Simulated scan of single mutants.
Amino acid sequence: MAEPSNPHTAEGINPDPLSPVAAEEEEGGAPGGGLPVLKLSKAGFDNLITDVQMPQEYGAVYPQEGDTGVDAPAGYVTMWAEFFGDCNLRLPLTVFVADLLEWYKLHISQLSPFGMTRIRNFEYTCRAFDIEPTVGDFWRFYQMTVSMGFFSFHQRDGSPKLMTPPKGITKWKTKVFYIKAAAIGAEVTFRNVTDTIITETISVLKVGVVDWFPRLRVIEWKKLSNTRLWVLRMMLTRMSRKVRAVVREKSGEDAALWRMFDPDFKGKVEVVACADSEEGFNLTISDNFRLPELEAMEVELPQGKGTIDKPLLFYK
């Protein structure tokens, strides 16, 4: 695996720490501490798995009655259903998301939807303008935070705005399910939520610091369809490998990816057949994803309750 770009060697850093930071928008836990119990219906779970085209081999399972986010069976990890809603996450993870989890030493279940939203917004903003997203560039815009046992990110003071922070993401801790740990495809760890996170002060990003900065524009947070995530190289579909996705104006002319986010865009993303000599889009973009090892996915998992603090994780 290629190493993610190192934010601490990025041009323009001022390493002078200021004060501890914490996320402000995270909601509290259950009365008396701990996580609230499951309130995602079985029908809601089934519809979610179908809607997001969850690969069957990833072994997504519905929790038992009374389960919480810390009750994943042995060999499985917790996933928050909201990740696959407004947060626009799909599996397999993209290389960018996997690299980010590894760089910040976060387990995916320790991220709140507020943090995942910023991660995926950054990713589709970069891809809309043909910029390859990296951990180092994400770090230029966002400071990691922790609150109520979950990690998130907020915009750095003075950094260019990329999105308006989400509001109204409630009850997400009650909407949980489990997938095989090997499906994550990242070498993730559990970070200590009691560690103090110090504010990092860096120079404001501007023209001349990075060559792609003049191309960047604000793209507000929004929920995207599977096809839009596909054309943005942020998911693999279950479609035929001999098709591709294109953005087209209402006139039928091809359009740049960023046009999908313009208020005056009246076109759509279309799925078209590939020419005989053309490689299907899934094959073209497959290197953009951290695919789990087939052998790891086929390992027979132990029965009974387990704990999510010792996941079985494999990647390539």
Rank of each mutant, 00 (worst) to 15 (best):
A2T: 09
E3K: 12
E3F: 11
S5R: 08
S5P: 05
H8W: 13
I13D: 12
I13P: 00
P17K: 07
L18R: 14
L18D: 15
A23E: 13
E24G: 14
E27N: 12
G28M: 09
P36M: 07
L38W: 06
L40E: 09
L40N: 06
S41F: 02
S41W: 01
K42G: 04
F45H: 08
D46G: 05
N47C: 10
D51C: 07
M54T: 03
P55R: 05
Y58T: 02
Y58Q: 02
G59F: 10
P63K: 06
Q64C: 13
D71T: 12
A74E: 15
A74W: 08
A81G: 05
C87F: 02
N88V: 09
L106Y: 03
I108D: 04
S112Y: 03
P113T: 02
G115T: 09
R118G: 11
I119Y: 00
I119R: 00
Y124K: 03
Y124T: 06
Y124N: 08
Y124Q: 04
T125V: 12
C126P: 10
A128G: 11
F129T: 01
E132V: 11
V135A: 02
V135D: 02
V135C: 01
D137I: 08
R140P: 10
Y142A: 07
Y142R: 09
V146R: 07
V146W: 01
S147C: 15
S147T: 10
F151C: 06
L162N: 06
T164G: 07
P165E: 12
P166Q: 05
K167W: 13
K167L: 12
G168N: 12
G168A: 04
K171R: 14
V176I: 15
A181L: 00
A182L: 04
I184F: 06
G185P: 06
T189Y: 02
V193W: 08
V193L: 01
D195P: 01
T196W: 02
T196E: 13
T196L: 11
E200I: 10
T201W: 02
T201S: 12
I202C: 09
I202A: 09
L205N: 02
K206V: 01
G208V: 05
F213D: 07
P214H: 05
R215C: 07
R217K: 15
V218M: 15
E220G: 13
S225Y: 05
T227L: 14
W230T: 03
V231R: 11
L232W: 06
M234T: 08
M235T: 15
L236G: 00
M239W: 11
R241K: 11
R241G: 13
A245M: 03
V246C: 07
V247S: 04
E249N: 15
K250W: 09
K250I: 11
S251Y: 03
D254L: 11
A255C: 04
A255V: 05
A256F: 09
L257G: 00
M260P: 00
F261Q: 01
F261N: 04
D262T: 04
K266S: 14
K266T: 14
G267K: 03
E270A: 12
V271S: 01
A273L: 13
C274N: 07
A275C: 05
E278G: 00
E279R: 03
E279S: 04
G280C: 02
F281S: 01
N282R: 11
T284R: 13
L291C: 03
L291F: 13
P292H: 03
P292V: 09
E295A: 15
M297C: 06
M297A: 02
K305G: 13
K305V: 11
K310Q: 12
P311R: 03
